[in-house]
Amino acid sequence: MLAYILRRLLWTPVLLALAAFFVFFMGTCAPGDPAELRLGNRATPERIERERERLGLDRPILFQYAKYVNGILKGDFGDSYHYQGRPVLELIAPRLWVSMQLNIAALIVAVVIGLPLGFYAAKRQGTGRDPAIVISMLILYAMPVFFTAPLLILFFAVQLHWVPAAGWGGFFSLQIILPALTIGVPGAAIFVRHMRASTLEVIGQEYIRTAHAKGMSGFVVNYRHIARNALLPILTIMGFTLAGMFGGSLIVELIYGIPGAGRLSLDAIFQRDFPVLTAFVLLGAGMLVVANLVIDVAYTIVDPRIRLQ
């Protein structure tokens, strides 16, 4: 167990270094000369040449990569091409914080809706309610955000005036409700599916029959014996879901006008600001890898039957 965690901990930096190399390499394939982009159109060839030397662009790619990684270790992701030399991290950090808040709110929505519904569907297996829940959640899951986002705004903000139509006011503001629903409800469909499957598995176990036979109340069996055990496999899915949402929130941020990572990375694409884009992808990868590691370790603590190797 300890050996496993240790091995994972040692592999994680290697994994991130390889991921960083991949992203860095893609960045160098990108069109446009960074020196030219920095200096603008009116730069003379001599000045561009000097800038290239200053940035180390004339050195071999492995050397540039080493420099990039060295910078990252010190918290320096390079400078943006577009925002005249501002450090990338300074641009990204506040945006990423906004996106994270939004995604956590969405995850809460997904869990609060998804887990009870999945449990309920499993308990009602064989009746019409089970397929009704599964299919209606699938319909919501398949609905593209290009449609759900404006629909929610039109209904709750424009028609009913319950919440502001767009913008960002922090985690505890009314504005977060609609975007969190837009991302969270399709996410709930994933939880319904897995919670239902895992509950069905637990219901078939012998200890459940024993608990009923002992004359325990339905409530106690449901919550202490079934739900608790059914929740275990859900932990793993949380990591994936959070990662999936991170991607999905790009479009939602655009439609709701939220100043998150999505907006900035989209601008980065069109302004050919590759330091910003690569930093995003790399930070996203870092968060995903660490989240999965934490979840794997948490898993062994929650469920002592599992021994990782």
Partner: peptide
């Protein structure tokens, strides 16, 4: 290790 959409966009 990368979030799908971000990698695809990059």
């Amino acid at each position: 290790a990368f979030p799908d959409i971000l990698l695809i966009i990059l």
